[in-house]
Design a protein around this nucleic acid. Structure first.
Lengths: 187, 187
DNA sequence: TGTACATCAGTGAACGCGCGTTCACTGATGTAC
DNA sequence: TGTACATCAGTGAACGCGCGTTCACTGATGTAC
């Protein structure tokens, strides 16, 4: 925990630092603790400083969600890349999906569990990219026939499981890893 | 909208009125608007009055969630009662599940979408009752073999679909009723 | 290379807001006798 | 049936809190010449 050497008046990358701070606060203290002022504190600037980068609190939130989607997208791609066959890729994506949600529960909930502000173009784009990723995988595995229906069903399953796991609603006696394995194998 | 006739000093059933007010606020203005003071306002009492019935704001929240679970339980029972065969009962429960969530999105999210305070005995009981209801239906339909796994899978599917629908994450072109029908028919 | 100056990105004080909670109080209710 | 009184369930003022946002400001940076 070194003291910042020059104690710069200008931060350098406050925008990025605020997003990073926001995600850390989110994971550590939950959505209720995610405020502009808290992000500013964590980034080591005065609470009025963020104004120059995010006009309103909702803008920062949207941006945090958007970067969450990007990481999420990457995680699913990484999962799929480990497999050869299209069906195996889809199943791997399902596992990666739940793994991501469990690793970043608060960000995941922000991404999927709230009415998100539809204003941010960046967020809109990141969201639709995630959906396209899933439908593509489904189509590759099972063909275009009823692809939408199958994609919705697949998504519902992993999303529901992830949410229940995150919110501690699954029975404590359940072997979650085995349950996930079984469920994805039937995708 | 009659004026309350006697303008009683004592409310009569403030406790019940606060729970009712809380649910209405929840559905109308969302979870962020659900405060002790707002409930008191809606119930027509001073903002300090609830203190006598709910020592803390979390207690009121827990009670609202608990009554939500009770209604939910009832809705699933009603759905199942329309069918004869065990498998058909389970499918009907799935449909009722999603219907309830769509009809009461904010209450549903409060019930399933948050870390709920585990202190309230009433809430704890209502939650485990809902889970038992589902596992019973699964066992009745498919026998005790792998019942837990099957129950989790079923629950994940309907919960995920309900959440995505509530949060407007499903593709706008999707025929939700048909999708739900197809999904439940494969339970 | 040096200087003037516009622009950018911070600071810190102040604003009003609604919140939960506490407190002394008071009106209404119910019970003992 | 009446009365005294304890208890209950309200009131309304006050508290401190953290929040988002605004504002005049100032230090740092970059560009024109």
């Amino acid at each position: 925990m070194k003291k910042k050497p020059p104690k710069n008046y200008h931060h350098g990358d406050l925008r990025g630092a605020l997003i990073k701070a926001g995600r850390e606060i989110l994971e550590k203290d939950g959505a209720a603790a995610l405020t502009l002022r808290a992000c500013a504190r964590k980034a080591g600037v005065s609470h009025a400083a963020p104004q120059h980068h995010f006009p309103t609190a909702a803008d920062l939130l949207a941006e945090i969600a958007a970067t969450g989607y990007e990481d999420f997208h990457q995680a699913l791609d990484d999962g799929a890349a480990k497999e050869e066959a299209a069906a195996a890729k889809l199943q791997a994506m399902g596992r990666s999906y739940v793994t991501f949600a469990k690793a970043h529960p608060a960000v995941y909930k922000l991404m999927f569990g709230a009415e998100t502000p539809p204003k941010s173009e960046h967020l809109q784009h990141a969201m639709s990219a995630a959906w396209n990723q899933l439908t593509s995988a489904v189509t590759a595995a099972y063909g275009p026939d009823e692809a939408q229906l199958r994609a919705v069903s697949t998504w519902s399953l992993v999303h529901g499981f992830a949410m229940l796991a995150i919110n501690h609603r699954l029975p404590p006696t359940l072997d979650q890893a085995r349950a996930l394995e079984t469920m994805t194998s039937r995708l």
